[in-house]
Design a protein around this nucleic acid. Structure first.
Lengths: 346, 346
DNA sequence: CACTTCTAGTTCATCGATGTCAACGGACCG
DNA sequence: CGGTCCGTTGACATCGATGAACTAGAAGTG
């Protein structure tokens, strides 16, 4: 590994001049610039990032904190963010928190000091903890929950998305539309469930349909997975409650519902229509393919990095948090439209 | 941020002594150690990682290079590796290569200098390129392809896994077992396909079944996804070739096959049994749940980090690469066994 | 021509921690 | 009692790059 000093000697100039050339600073004549460039090429010199970081105090490292990667939603989000970070010349350091406040905080105390910024999908953090995280390092949350803290946040169009989905179903003639994934604990970390339930009510009222509590299915755990989606749907069927559609608050739940409905020999979408939220790859490939709300993952990644950039540059307001809500798309597929749409297409 | 200097002043000692305490070096009396510890606590001092890295030349950063995260197999692998890295006190820097040699190399030239090690799932690299990567930074490949280079590698039990799967099917009485995912291009980057096909032949010959070329399905692209799995299976059905089982070389292909088989109104597993490879979460949740070869992802992560540790410590032999093959498990589920095994269980 | 004004480039200190080596004080020994 | 040795501790240089302050010479100005 050659250093700037080596390059300087070879080019017959001072190290500082080499530094100027490398960083494209002004005050270097064309002639010397060329000499230095030549020396750099000959020695295959690459500036030592660590030393630079120490001197400048900047690292170009941003932390990405997610609960898991094994759930496709997070994996897809991670991928989008990494691709976007690359465009900003930032290096991503990924940490899995398991959705536990402890781990979410540990990340900050352990890596915080040398992180230029932090993108976090917080789950367990309290308002107070969120504040302390944001105080320690420039932070952007990707989260449906609003925090009582001056933190930037990117969210999905939870309410509007579900509202539109209910509208979609109503316009197809479905009238007894179940909601799958409600939460009645009121706990703030379940904000996504609350907002989506609000959207469900909005959609019903838009369509002039009554809100029927027996069609609102709670899911026992905070984990929205197929297992629980199937169980809740089975329960609905067994109770004999009449219904002709299910709007699930997550694709995983919807895929479970799909399973339970087919298990009961009900035709999709003729007897029961099903829809989800997240637009996972799995939704496209499900059988039948699943209608879903695409939450604009790419846009979320873009906005999150834009906000973070501002904050790292201290361009952003210091005492207030900004909120960006991503646009959604309603991806209508076989599970509501029926037909023989080619499998695996958008 | 307080520095060692601050702590030293507060404790009335020299910075070097603080350094000794922090790093648990010997040669510090109990009395001073306590004074220093107290000062550290009072100032909430945390050593500056960047400065330490510069001085020592070590970083504790390992790169993780994967083609994608959006394919569940890679996401699950990434998760396993991150969890394991944490146990080794290593920080993981993830990069997505898209499976392109260019990106795989760029990672090294860009971040290589300050990476303590590299875990890569290589796809596009040539032997020569693999060599140059391994020369630049301590490297462990996770890859089915063997490289003509002194690089450590962790692989799956490709051949044995498929062999066992074919045995499993034969023991259940299936005799016309199709292979899905073969490759006849012979290109080295498709080694997984070649090995698995070998395993298929082994399995047939173990069971005394003939190898029938018309039952070997090639998949057009290197991408093993559901779409292609479904297409190839449809082709088989349309050609009217009799078959009673499909062993797919990847779960994604198997899920596609599942779809195509059901589409043709063939009962699973009564008329056609289906099995995959990878044991994705999706396999457990498929309908019917999918029998699959679990490649031992957790073990792969463990072994990969163990090998990398050796190599970073220079404990490993320098001119030769080691190979570890992970154990596999045959997860038999409804798609071969039938029955009503609880959905979503192991 | 003396004097300011640039420009191109240099010197030196510095970021924070750590390796090297020397110094200091007490214990122990002959 | 002088000398050696050992356990502690500190002074200083160093890792590689960069910011601040400075200089030598060219160019412009009245």
């Amino acid at each position: 590994m050659s250093t700037m000093h080596d390059v300087a000697q070879r080019a017959g100039v001072s190290p500082k001049t080499v530094s100027r050339v490398v960083n494209g600073e002004p005050g270097v004549s064309e002639r010397t610039r060329q000499k230095v460039d030549a020396a750099i090429a000959e020695l295959d010199f690459r500036p030592n990032t660590v030393a630079r970081n120490l001197r400048t105090g900047r690292t170009g490292l941003v932390g990405l904190a997610l609960p898991h990667l094994s759930q496709p939603f997070y994996a897809e989000l991670a991928e989008a963010i990494m691709r976007e970070a690359e465009r900003h010349d930032l290096t991503v350091l990924t940490e899995l928190t398991g959705g536990v406040a402890e781990a979410e905080l540990a990340l900050v105390s352990e890596h915080g000091p040398y992180l230029a910024g932090l993108l976090m999908y917080p789950v367990g953090l309290s308002d107070e903890q969120a504040r302390s995280v944001a105080r320690a390092v420039p932070t952007v949350f990707m989260s449906e929950r609003a925090y009582e803290a001056p933190v930037d946040r990117v969210a999905m169009a939870n309410r509007e998305g579900v509202r539109a989905m209910v509208g979609h179903m109503a316009s197809l003639g479905y009238t007894r539309i179940a909601a799958l994934g409600a939460d009645h604990t009121g706990r703030p970390e379940r904000a996504a469930a609350h907002l989506r339930l609000d959207g469900y009510r909005d959609g019903l009222s838009d369509a002039g349909l009554p809100y029927l509590p027996e069609l609102v299915l709670e899911v026992g755990t905070p984990d929205w997975d197929r297992q629980h989606g199937a169980e809740a749907t089975r329960g609905l069927i067994e109770r004999g409650v009449p219904f002709d559609a299910v709007v699930a608050f997550a694709d995983a739940l919807a895929l479970g519902a799909l399973h339970a409905v087919q298990e009961a020999d009900l035709a999709i979408p003729d007897q029961v229509a099903v829809a989800g939220f997240d637009d996972l790859d799995d939704a496209r490939y499900a059988c039948p393919s699943l209608t879903s709300v695409a939450p604009g993952t790419a846009q979320i990644a873009r906005e999150a990095l834009a906000l973070l950039n501002d904050r790292m540059a201290l361009t952003a307001p210091q005492n207030t948090g900004r909120l960006v809500v991503a646009d959604f798309d309603l991806m209508a597929r076989e599970s509501t439209l029926g037909g023989v749409a080619a499998w695996g297409t958008a």
